[in-house]
């Protein structure tokens, strides 16, 4: 029986043991729980909805088929995330990397779309909205200076709000290397912003 959302979180370790014993239907819990997050993460890398869906499905399939290799000291979510990132990395290597720097889908008329959360002022003036758009543009352009690896780590840290240990576990890099990438990403973005001023 699949645990209902309002019930206490199930013991994922127990679920995995039962799936290994042959109860395939219990894997549905993990799909319902994590597919949205995994798809969103894949989309940040692949920049295409169809490919992100494919990445998510393939990641779950790989996780299901290699469940014997899952170490119970880790969390299923982190392990699945690592599978997804590796799949995305392989996919990107087979594509031209210029697609990785794609700015993302731009809405045709950005002025007509209000941000859902207005941290500064719930009813900003046109000048404040224009200032906000300008800052977002500068931020995107600064991110354009990053290498694929730097961008991916920057996105995981500041957009997906993953901790450094989590990023280290899903990428297979050590925490010191993660911090080096973040530091170097920050340097490059500052240099790009300074170039705009100049």
């Amino acid at each position: 029986m699949i645990p209902h959302e309002t019930e206490a979180p199930p013991d994922e370790g127990r679920l995995i043991r039962e799936i290994r014993a042959g109860r395939t239907e219990l894997f549905e819990y993990f799909v319902r729980q994590y597919q949205k997050k995994i798809t969103r993460l894949a989309y940040r890398f692949l920049r295409d909805v169809g490919e992100a869906d494919c990445a998510a499905q393939e990641s779950f399939l790989r996780a299901y088929q290699s469940l014997d290799s899952f170490r119970e000291g880790s969390t299923f979510e982190t392990w699945l995330t690592r599978i997804c990132i590796n799949w995305c990395k392989d996919r990107l290597k087979r594509r031209r990397l210029v697609l990785y720097f794609h700015q993302g889908p731009r809405r045709e008329n950005e002025e007509s779309e209000e941000p859902q959360e207005l941290a500064v002022n719930p009813d900003p003036s046109p000048e404040r909205r224009a200032a906000g758009r300008e800052i977002r543009d500068r931020l995107r352009q600064a991110m354009g200076a990053l290498s694929p690896r730097q961008r991916s780590i920057f996105v995981m840290k500041h957009f997906e709000e993953m901790s450094i240990p989590e990023i280290a576990e899903v990428t297979g890099l050590d925490a010191g290397t993660i911090k080096s990438h973040l530091f170097r990403a920050a340097q490059k973005m500052r240099e790009r912003l300074s170039d705009f001023r100049a």
Partner: peptide, 16 residues
């Protein structure tokens, strides 16, 4: 700038 970070993060995956 903090708001811009949140907005770009959300716009980054707006299609989803």
């Amino acid at each position: 700038w903090r708001s811009a970070m949140r907005e770009v993060a959300r716009e980054d995956v707006a299609e989803l």
